[in-house]
Amino acid sequence: MSQAELTAVPAPRTAPRALWAFGILRSELATTLRRWRTLALLGVLAAVPVLIGIAVRIETGDGSRGGPDGGGGPAFLSQVTNNGLFLVFAALSATLPVFLPMAVGVVAGDSVAGEASGGTLRYLLVAPAGRTRLLLVKYASVLVFCLVATLVVAASALAAGALLFPVGEVTTISGTRIGFGEGLLRAGLIAVAVAVSLTGFAALGLFISTLTDSGVAAMAATVGVLITAQILDTMPQLEGIHPYLFPHYWMSFTDLLRDPVHWDELTRNLGLQALYAAVFGSAAWARFTTKDVSV
């Protein structure tokens, strides 16, 4: 070891140093994504589209494709039998209100508090990871999880849809028809839009995670906030505050299936998520950089 270090020292230190800082991000991603708990969450998320697909397939097993469908259930469900690609949209509509954010809430809520309750936080800090750097890395890895979780749902839905149903041209919400390739592209955009929808909530979870030294408490509180916001968003008496609730524009991703795309609510969603990320990211930073780490 000393040999290697001696040869490493005279090399220019500034350039590699900037890259060395990414070591902790890599470690954080590997630690988060390879955990059994994370894999279980992703497994559940991957199973949802498969179950929806099978249910739709059984329901319409007599071959009466696209029979009259009174609605109910997630959006796009009625089109799934005509085009398996719609299972992607149906599955994202089904998981976005609860399953996806709940998984994000678990990962975000546990991110700092879990390290605190395990005692590993003190060893990361004396390593020294640096409080700001550690918090940035934690948020970055939660964001990566948002994207991975969404892509898992989308990919599983695409695979199940292609296996169980025919695929082909897509009829947009506006009634126009677009090619399958274009449809796939829209599905990819929608997955990204859904992942972005979760970024504000992820920042909120990170903030809650800096408030307590108990991982379980932070996870529970984060998921509690999610459910509360969802309930408030359905109460007509509170219409005034609806535009400021982080889940309010979540379903705006469906506007990507219009022709032409309606950007209005999509950009509003983007702005709202950025606002949440800025406010709760700053709050998390203010809290974490001054916090007594005494466990």
């Binding site: 070891m1 290697a4 270090e5 490493a8 590699p16 140093r17 060395w20 800082a21 070591g23 902790i24 890599r26 470690s27 630690t31 060893y123 990361l124 390593a127 020294p128 990871a129 640096g130 750097r133 550690l134």
Partner: peptide, 20 residues
């Protein structure tokens, strides 16, 4: 490896050797 990665002053090229 995790604790070593957390130290920005630690050269990743010699991480394995340090850990062993």
């Amino acid at each position: 490896v995790r604790f070593d990665s957390a130290d920005p002053a630690a050269d990743p090229r010699t991480r394995r050797a340090r850990v062993e």
